[in-house]
Write a protein that binds this DNA or RNA. Structure first.
Length: 570
RNA sequence: UGGGGCGUCGACAAGUGGUAAGUCACGGGUCUUUGGUACCCGCAUCCGCAGGUUCGAAUCCUGCCGCCCCAGCCA
């Protein structure tokens, strides 16, 4: 493993080791109430990466303390995603629910120590008694119940004698604390709801705040790494650990969660996108979920590289999604075989090519890596090129096809456009009639003449049809999560389905998930919707397009010199 | 009117008193049968602002400004 760039957590851990600590145990603690997303990947890479780096171990622990929102489906999906990312928790699959009995015993211990009490306040009353940022709280009228009464009530809570919400067990800490978390926070609530793992065994469930630190302690977690919003809770976690007399408690370290531009990363919002049908499920390729990214064609390696590059700090940030895109391009450039696919086919007839004849050409599957081998291309009289590769009135610096211009067909030959055929009614260009230079077979100019443009192409006869799904950012603004109504910024053009595409015949055999570079266009992978006779590709990411940049610049300068700035159009 | 954090290039992010790493983006160039890749060059006299300490500060001190989190029986 290459050395990652340093971060403040490394410093803390190294200082702990220097001070005598022997081992490192971390954990990734998801709640099974949604799918994992790229933000979780940051945490996963951090926690498992730390364990790897310092020879420790990292557990996968489900913080399943709230049966109202959690489901088995998520438990399964989360495990699949962590494994897919490339991490292994071995036999350390843990659940907070496995510790419910131990947590219960600890709760009784606190009651006996006079540090916890059963409270009959309703949620509204409790909020009122708690006060606010500027006003201290008042003690609950039930705060001074005797140990015996508390014990009796708590046991009866467990036994199911009271309705939902009628009572809570609260820590007795400090109603006037400046830290709201210490104003006698609830430890248990009554929920007559079955749990996906413990079934009907419990009708009282521990709160996350009560459970988390102790769960870490049970597992021997040495460094409990979490996001910044839990920093305010740390004094509470430390209080529990201290009052319980737990030796060698975990040390909590907070870092800033990931924000990615042009998407949302909050579970609430993601679940909304799914449930309201703005996307087609958790694995919609436009989703920032690991399932979505996987279906989109992102590799685990690229996601890990991304997490490595963004670093870890305590400063709020909004990472440019371009960084993620660059990470996949970088990875796929090395590992994706090159093929040709035409998204918007334009028929080309080679008028001087012998009818019925076919020339076979060997083409490398990766120009920089011969180990990929080659495949056979068949050139015949009729073929398709990309509509965008032809311009009847070529702009400045254009070196693709145009009337009278010569261009190279990748790995095939040089052709010159002689005639443009249009639909007599619509005027649409339907065909190009070109001549080829038979001496240029393979694409080499026989006399060394310079032909700058190279186009991808596909044989009209033996190419196969395909559906191609083009994705764009899900939102039109950089930080939709910060807007009042993030749904108002959904990008209506986030998905474009192209149905008349043509690809090389070898792709008919490709299996779902396989990635390819369609030369000059981008990286595409086979979607699981693919059926025999119906190929479906997802565009993972485009290639960098410097022509687009040049054209944009030319247009801008033309506009500037012609009409001056700000000339309205249309 | 409280408490806890954070502010270094367009976006991330190193740096921990000795004179501003790296990545992405951006600009320029070389190479090129992908206007892809690769490679080369450039890109913060300055570290939220203002004072102070020091031979010397992004790093220490003081004050100010800005942003984030906290009033769920969510996590």
């Amino acid at each position: 493993m290459s050395e990652s760039s340093s971060n403040f957590i490394h410093d803390i851990i190294e200082a702990d080791f220097a001070a005598g600590r022997r081992r490192l145990v971390t954990r990734f603690p998801p709640e099974p109430n949604g799918y994992l997303h790229i933000g979780h990947a940051k945490s996963i890479c951090l926690n498992f990466g730390l364990a790897e780096k310092y020879g420790g171990q990292c557990n996968l622990r489900f913080d399943d303390t709230n049966p109202c929102t959690e489901e088995e489906e998520y438990v399964t999906a989360i495990q699949r995603d962590v494994r897919w990312l490339g991490f292994d928790w071995q036999d350390r699959l843990c659940f907070a629910s496995d510790y419910f009995e131990r947590l219960y015993e600890w709760a009784e211990q606190l009651i006996r120590a006079g540090k916890a009490y059963v409270c009959d306040l309703s949620p509204d009353e409790m909020a009122d008694y708690r006060g606010n940022y500027y006003r201290k709280g008042r003690p609950s009228p039930f705060r001074d119940r005797s140990v015996e009464e508390n014990l009796d009530l708590f046991r009866r809570m467990r036994a199911g004698e009271f309705p939902d919400g009628s009572k809570t067990l609260r820590a007795k800490i400090d109603m006037s604390s400046q830290n709201m978390n210490l104003r006698d926070p609830p430890m248990y609530r009554i929920r007559h709801v079955p749990h996906h793992r413990t079934g009907h065994a419990w009708c009282i469930y521990p709160t996350y705040d009560w459970a988390h630190g102790q769960c870490d302690a049970i597992e021997g977690v040495t460094h409990s790494i979490c996001t910044l919003e839990f920093e305010n809770h740390r004094p509470l976690y430390d209080w529990f650990l201290r009052e319980l007399g737990i030796a060698d408690p975990p040390r909590q370290i907070e870092f800033a969660r990931l924000n990615l531009s042009y998407t949302v990363l909050s579970k609430r919002k993601l679940i909304q996108l799914v449930q309201q049908g703005h996307v087609n499920g958790w694995d919609d390729p436009r989703m920032p979920t690991l399932a979505g990214l996987r279906r989109r064609g992102y590799t685990p390696e690229s996601i890990r590289a991304f997490c490595e590059r963004i670093g870890v700090s305590r400063a709020d940030s909004l990472v440019d999604v371009g960084l993620l895109e660059n990470a996949v391009r970088d990875d796929l450039n090395r590992r994706a075989p090159r093929v040709m696919g035409v998204l918007h086919p334009l028929r080309v007839v080679l008028t001087n090519f012998p009818p019925g004849q076919t020339i076979e050409l060997e083409a490398p599957l990766h120009p920089e890596d011969p180990s990929f081998g080659t495949r056979t291309l068949r050139l015949s009289r009729e073929l398709y090129i990309e509509r965008d590769d032809f311009r009847e009135n070529p702009p400045n610096k254009w070196f693709r096809l145009a009337p009278g211009r010569e261009v190279r067909l990748r790995y095939a030959c040089l052709i010159t456009c002689q005639e443009v055929v249009r639909d007599p009614h619509t005027g649409e260009i339907v065909e190009l009639r070109c001549t080829w230079d038979p001496a240029s077979r393979g694409g080499q100019a026989p006399d060394g003449r310079r032909v700058q443009g190279t186009s991808h192409w596909v044989s009209a006869e033996d190419s196969v049809p395909a559906e191609v799904r083009l994705y764009d950012r899900l939102f039109t603004c950089e930080d939709p999560g910060a807007q009042e109504d993030f749904l108002a910024y959904l990008n209506p053009a986030s998905l474009t389905v192209l149905s008349g595409c043509r690809v090389e015949p070898m792709l008919a055999q490709a299996s779902p998930g396989a990635s390819f570079q369609f030369e000059r266009l981008g990286y595409f992978c086979v979607d699981p919707d693919t059926r025999p006779g119906h190929l479906v590709f997802n565009r993972t990411v485009t290639l960098k397009d410097s022509w687009a940049k040049i054209e944009k610049k030319e247009q801008a300068s033309r506009l500037a010199s012609a009409g001056g700035p700000g000339t309205p159009r249309g």
